[in-house]
Structures are given as C-alpha cells and as structure tokens.
Amino acid sequence: MEINFEHGHGAHCESAVVRNLLNFYGVRLSEPMVLGLGAGIFFCHLPFFKVNGYAMTSFRYISGRIFSDVTKTLGIEYRKHSFKDPDEAMAKLDEVLLSGTPVGLRVGVYNLTYFPKEYRVHFNGHNLCVIGKEGDDYIISDPIGQNKNKLSSADLKKVRFAQGALPPKGSMYYITSMEHYKPLDTGMIEKSIIKTCYNMTHIPLPMFGAKGIAYLARRMRKWEKLFGKREAALNLAQIIRMLEEIGTGGAGFRFMYAAFLQEASVLLNRPALNQFSMDLTAVGDLWRDFSYNAARFFKQREPEGLTYNDLAVKLEVISARELDIFKRLENSIKRG
C-alpha cells in the first residue's frame, strides 16, 4: 500500500520533511518558512564533542526541533517515539503506516544504499519520510532525492538503529490531529524571529551563536600546532562538509533564512526585513568565499599565500556581521 503523498524535492532534509508532511495535511508552507518558524538557523562549534572523529560544527539547531517547534506553533498535535528494541520499532512503524499516516524518521546516513559512497559517513541526523509498504520494501520519500525510492526492511532497520554520536534509536514522529490547527499569522513569525535572534546573540557561552564563529576562528589559528598539517586540513574539510554538503540550501542555511526573511517582509508588511534579507545574503556570499578559499587546502598541502590565519580573519568578519544583523533584527521586531 502507498499513501497518496506528494513527494517534494527540498534543500534541507528536516525542513523539507516537515514541509511535505504539513502539505499532506493541507497546510501549504514554503521550505524557508518552515525553517524560519522552527528557528532552524544556528551556529555552534564544540571541540569536545566529536562526530566522526572531528569537532562538531553545526549550522542548524538540534535535529528534531524544527518539527516540534513548527507543529507546536501551528497548534498541530504530534507523537514522537524512540525504542530500545528494533523489532518493536518496526512493528510500531507498520502499525502507524497501515492507519494511513506518513511517518518521519531520523536515521543514520552510513547504510543508506542510495547515497554515493563518498557521502556515507556515520552521521545520525538525516530525516526522511516513510509513505508506504510493498511486500518487504518500504516506500521512502527522501527530500534530498528528486524522486521517491524504496528501501528493504532490513536496510531500514539498520539505518534506524545506527550507532555513533547522537544515535537515532529508531526515533519516529507523525502528526496525530489537526483539531486545534491555527493558520499562520504575523505573531507566530515575529515570535520565531525573536527566538532565532536569542539563539544567535544571547546564549552566554562562547561556542554558541554568531560569536561561536569567532570562537571557531580562534581555534582554527591553533589547529596546525595542535594536530599537524594533515589533521588540520581534515578538520577544515569537516567544516566545509557541514556548511555545504547536500542539505543546507547553500552557505549553512544563510541563504535559506534570507529567503524566509524576504517572505516574512511581505507577510508582515515590513520592508525593513527585506533589507535584513539582503544583508544576510551578503554574509552567505562571504561564507561561500570562505569555502572557496578553504578548498585550496585540500588540493595542495600548503597553498601559496594562504594560511589558517587568513581563513580565521574571514570568519571573524562573518562573525561580526552576523552578530550585528541579528541584534538589529531583534531590535527592529521588538520595537514593531
């Protein structure tokens, strides 16, 4: 059986899954709007928390928060489950699926057979949607793919119970009721923007928010001394992967959030937000420039006229500008 589910290609796995799920229930939102409502943009660099052997750098909020924030904001009721026993997890998935409900899953990337081998790392933050079952195969709507695909139940069990940093433990989520659904209004958008600004500017630890980028810059200056040339370049590669690998909409969500601000400027009737959108676009271009320069470290071990210090300076500029944008944005929303 297959649920009549409209598969849509998306930029980021989680926001696109949420968009497709909401679409199934008749709520039409764009992907940037979902990211914005879920306060999805963020930055953190945690040298003591390793993913794949390298310091965790994240450009989004914790996996799963976009779904819970957006549904709560819109007054939609949902359920989330995680399991210890894989067989129980698969049985529950079948039960919910047979009742005609599409189910979102958080999975590990390593055993997803349709990914190119170079992309298959032990990363447990990928989201996809299960929309049907045919014999032993599940029909998957993975928003990173332009088409739907199939995955055998053995493979699905593997990816749902992947191990490593932040194991998904078979976690699944689905919408249960639209009874108290409230249509999108201006208050919701303003609230989510303020929440985002809080995350980006007010967290009192140096690794989080826009100042976290400057923290990364300070760490980057020490890399060669701490790890040696090769490991330093690998650390840099990890950051470029998190910034640009399939699933961020370009420049670590900066372009997608700018698209949200532009959409919000029309909905809230505030032309000032469009200016913020253009400012954030300019920062996104700086991130692209950073990636472009960083890539030279992967081709030559010691690129001419480029050091980690130069890259760190670029990051410091980005940090200052993002801090400025989100502070001004918060003020402009609060003053109305």
């Binding site: 998306g10 930029a11 349709y114 993975d142 793919g145 332009q146 088409n147 699933g247 909409g249 698209a259």
Partner: peptide, 10 residues
C-alpha cells in the same frame, strides 16, 4: 532513479 540533488536559494 532517486537522483540525489542539492537545492540552493539564490
């Protein structure tokens, strides 16, 4: 068949 592809905002 899946045709994985990125999507950028520009």
């Amino acid at each position: 068949d899946v045709s994985l592809c990125g999507r950028l905002f520009a």
